[in-house]
């Protein structure tokens, strides 16, 4: 026959265990990273894409350099050219300081954005900006690595547009995620963020 105290202790332990399991799954390390959350470190990513020159690229193309990565598509009339123009402006301002920075647009519209399309599109912006595309499942995989989301939205006349994560992801040279530059963030905030990511590299190199 169990004592009342023993039953109470077991009950309490069960409640704590349930709470712990709940926390682990919802907020703790076992939680599924929700879309919009921070991307993985580049060193944990495992994607493979094709750049504007037809070369195979992946996280290893970025690791070793500070990098800016963002998602978009070339049929986008507003957000994407604005982001590309903003980034071109930041790169102009940073000048030779940003020579080592890898800057990449990854398309979320692989059906229309072929290698040739990406090559033409990025050629209109700062020469440091690259354009990467891939097969639909490769794009799905890279978006998941970055915790970016995208969705096809059908228009009235058979056309379609893409909703997508619009921020610019900033990584230091070790591949660590540093911060996001929000869509249309003013230059006076964006440029210091990039400088910080580049400094992380300098410090990383020293240690």
């Amino acid at each position: 026959m169990m004592s009342v105290a023993k039953i109470a202790a077991i009950g309490a332990a069960a409640v704590f265990a349930a709470l712990f399991v709940g926390w682990w799954q919802v907020d703790g390390p076992g939680a599924d990273p929700a879309p919009g959350k921070r991307p993985m470190p580049l060193t944990s990513m495992d994607f493979s894409l094709t750049d504007q020159d037809g070369q195979e690229v992946g996280p290893e193309t970025l690791i070793g350099h500070p990098s800016l990565v963002f998602f978009g598509f070339t049929y986008c009339p507003d957000v994407c050219p604005t982001t590309l123009s903003d980034i071109s402006g930041w790169l102009d301002e940073l000048g030779p300081e940003a020579e080592d920075l890898r800057t990449v647009l990854i398309t979320v519209d692989p059906d229309r954005d072929t290698v040739e399309t990406m090559a033409e599109y990025v050629s209109y912006f700062h020469p440091q900006i690259q354009g990467w595309t891939g097969l639909p499942d490769q794009i799905a995989a890279v978006a998941e690595d970055f915790r970016a989301t995208y969705e096809k939205v059908e228009g009235e006349d058979g056309s379609y547009t893409m909703n997508h994560t619009a921020g610019v992801f900033l990584f230091d040279a070790t591949g660590r995620f540093v911060s996001i530059i929000d869509y249309h963030e003013p230059r006076e905030f964006a440029v210091p963020k990039i400088r910080r990511a580049m400094q992380d590299r300098a410090e990383g190199a020293k240690s």
């Binding site: 507003d78 619009a166 869509y183």
Partner: peptide, 18 residues
């Protein structure tokens, strides 16, 4: 062939839609 006014919105998760 089809001109209209569109609006871009960016939600709290940073996802832009039009």
């Amino acid at each position: 062939g089809m001109a209209s006014i569109h609006e871009t919105r960016t939600n709290s998760d940073g996802v832009s839609s039009m």
